[in-house]
């Protein structure tokens, strides 16, 4: 019964979280703090921190974390499945429509409007991450708040990507290791 409740709670998170990423957070909070007594607010805040600094979508990270607390490893699997079921159903329907209608003029028109929007959305998310990386959590954009080590890592990473098409995974880890080594070696906060 517990497993069913867990599945249904994360099914709703998957079903109503439009826009991805942080958009899922209020829904997760509603399910795991307000409706069900699975986490208190402090544990929820920790969950967000962990979800942000580990790989994978935030909703799946949250599902695993909460599932583990409620029902061990089986709970983690059940919550994850609940979270991906709505996507599986809805996206497969859309994918089917796409492969049937792609060449119809009206549908092609809709797609030609969506393509620039997709680029804009990625750019907007990129800006938010860049601001976080270069100016820190406080979000104050000023020269004093600028993290020079991160700026150097960012510049070097962008240069390598544009000039040599270096693998993104190598770039992310390279930037992490180089930045952390510089900061700890010179004791920069």
């Amino acid at each position: 019964m517990m497993m069913l409740t867990l599945y249904w709670a994360f099914f709703q998170v998957g079903l109503f979280a439009f826009g991805g990423g942080l958009a899922a957070l209020p829904l997760i909070r509603e399910q795991v703090v307000v409706i069900h007594p699975w986490l208190d607010m402090a544990a929820f805040t920790d969950l967000v921190t962990i979800a942000e600094m580990t790989p994978g979508p935030i909703a799946l990270n949250a599902a695993t974390f909460v599932g583990n607390r409620v029902g061990g490893v089986a709970g983690a699997v059940v919550a994850t499945l609940g979270c991906i079921t709505p996507s599986l159903i809805i996206v497969l329907i859309l994918a089917r429509l796409y492969s049937v209608w792609r060449d119809k003029a009206a549908f092609a028109g809709v797609l030609s409007g969506l393509r620039p929007a997709a680029v804009a959305l990625i750019a907007s998310a990129g800006m938010s991450i860049a601001i976080l990386a270069l100016f820190g959590e406080a979000g104050a954009i000023s020269l004093q708040a600028m993290d020079l080590v991160s700026l150097m890592c960012f510049g070097a990473a962008l240069f390598l990507l544009r000039k040599f098409k270096t693998s993104p995974i190598l770039i992310i880890f390279g930037a992490g290791i180089a930045g952390a080594a510089i900061k700890l070696a010179f004791n920069i906060p």
Binding site: A130, G174, A180
Partner: peptide, 20 residues
């Protein structure tokens, strides 16, 4: 904490590259 913080700079560069 330091590693994760600096990795964000790499992530930002990857996104800027692809948007470009």
């Amino acid at each position: 904490a330091a590693l994760l913080g600096a990795m964000r700079a790499g992530v930002a560069a990857v996104i800027v590259d692809v948007v470009w």
